[in-house]
Design a protein around this nucleic acid. Structure first.
Lengths: 238, 238
DNA sequence: TGACAGCTGTCGTTTTGCTGTCGGTTAACT
DNA sequence: AGTTAACCGACAGCAAAACGACAGCTGTCA
């Protein structure tokens, strides 16, 4: 079984009848260094899956021809065990997907946040990657984030973060020591199509600071403002 | 005989003529770090058993060609003592199965809950691992659960849990300190195909809390809500 | 067979606490 | 010193979670 992170590039198939959405996901994945192809219908998905032999599939349930479950069934019938993450509309009627019971590996409700989707894909890949799948722990200086348990610690102090704070911090830590603009953070962490061009990012950063940089005066700040540009998490060596 | 937990991955063969069910079981087993393969007919099962040399088999009784008993006979005839857990329809042949489950074998009625099946598989494996099989006791802080006796204690206070409460708590303890979503809990602890978009999980957690966190004012809560995400059992350090 | 008891899930109300908006204040750069 | 960006307190709307009350179901016992 392939080792997804170091041996070769992850191959992702994105299936969504809405081209902008499929492209959005594919673009972000490529930006992460993955190979991504898209399909906009069930038949096309099956064709692509055959040619492309993906390592993982993102599959919208609502498709013009064959629906998502049908695609999954036919994929399985053709013998592939490729992991699948479903996408489903918010209030589609009886679609409490119970991803598990339908043979999917995970699922996400639309509209989703891009980082959330990528995180789930990484998790699923890690799990299916074979025997020695280890925890995913992000670390910057004495700040650690365990993506499996959601434990975030500054030193050994356990922090309690809200979902939004957690997502913003994860994105900052994952990209550390890169500076991220507020627009990037907004685009990755908030659901696509989020209206409020407001100062939410500033606000969440402010709250994060209070929780993780304001612990006691002995600790050095890790979240830094780059005025006119954005934010970055890094340890400043004097 | 192989030691299932540390030496190497458990090898599981799932035999069910309904592919989604077989895949469901295989997927969950893989999440646990097992190797799993599926078969959808009796003949295929025998073939796979030959190639794959499983440590344990999940075997549906209702199969298109050879039925479960037939498969078992031919497995045994070929000399393997691999333990088998049967699946049977609700009002089918439960009695006959019970008679057949000698040794370490076991059976389960469909539709089953995934965690229940996994628990039985673990038990059967533990028993077949040899004479020196030890108790399985889960522990988080001063909360203990003995999976053999079903005794659950907070400190030395013995708790009386209903079956559902017990299953939910076991799943939470087994995955501790990971945060589990309500959907995950629902998917694992309730029978597959459980319809409800309801708040059963919240309710059971609420009842669990009253029993194990509300004992006396000296005790710290162990079940925590992670708002917007799910629940977790863990001891909060400091 | 009928009464009872305990378990489970539904409904609906209350409570909690997350999230984003507003706007005054502070800090940085020129 | 003026200008602009960032910070953050206060607040309100709202969605998630908690939980009491109740009803259906099942298994038990007389």
């Amino acid at each position: 079984m392939k080792h997804y992170e170091h041996v070769e590039r992850v191959r992702l198939l994105v299936v969504d009848d809405d081209p902008p959405i499929a492209d959005l996901v594919a673009t972000v994945a490529r930006y992460e260094g993955w190979d991504a192809v898209t399909a906009n219908s069930g038949e096309e998905a099956l064709r692509r899956a055959g040619e492309f032999d993906p390592d993982i599939v993102v599959l919208d349930l609502m498709l013009p021809d064959l629906d998502g479950f049908g695609v999954l069934d036919r994929l399985r019938a053709s013998g592939t065990m490729v992991p699948v993450v479903f996408l489903t509309a918010r209030d589609g009627v009886a679609d409490r997907v119970a991803g598990l019971t339908r043979g999917g590996d995970d699922y996400l409700v639309k509209p989703f946040a891009v980082e959330e989707l990528m995180a789930r894909l990484r998790t699923v890949l890690r799990r299916s990657a074979g025997p020695a799948f280890q925890r995913s722990v992000l670390q910057v200086a004495d700040l650690t984030m365990d993506e499996d348990t959601r434990e975030v610690r500054r030193g050994d102090k356990l922090l309690t973060l809200t979902p939004t704070e957690y997502e913003v911090l994860r994105y900052l830590m994952r990209k550390s020591p890169t500076v991220l603009t507020k627009a990037q953070i907004l685009d990755h962490v908030w659901e696509y199509g989020f209206g409020g061009r407001s100062n939410v990012v500033e606000l969440v950063v402010s709250r994060l600071r209070r929780k993780l940089d304001g612990i006691d005066d002995g600790s050095v700040p890790l979240i830094h403002t780059v005025r006119g540009v954005g934010y970055v998490v890094r340890q400043v060596t004097e």
